[in-house]
Amino acid sequence: MTAEPDLDRALVQHLADLARLHLPAERLATVLQNARRIVAAFGALGDLPLESGGDPDLQPVRLRTDTAEPPLPLDQVLANAPRTAGGMFVVPRVVDG
């Protein structure tokens, strides 16, 4: 079996950035400790012969045909949005000027 990845602070911080999560310093240590234990425990999966089992590209969920259906009315679409204006979602400014 191959060695476990070096799950360090930098990697966990990178994963948090990818997942759009902020980990305060006081929580990072706990997350790192738990993540290391879990990944180490899950490492045994690497013992399985790679050529056996199913196709990793197998689509586990069947998808419906891409057919347009009537959408929800606009007011219902916007009803749960934290901020709206003029029938649109409002987000922080993306482009300056």
Binding site: L48, L50, G53
Partner: peptide
């Protein structure tokens, strides 16, 4: 770098 080793292996194990 990790997908095949973890997610890919899990898909295979599910089929087993």
């Amino acid at each position: 770098g990790y997908q095949d080793r973890y997610y890919g292996q899990a898909i295979r194990a599910r089929e087993l």
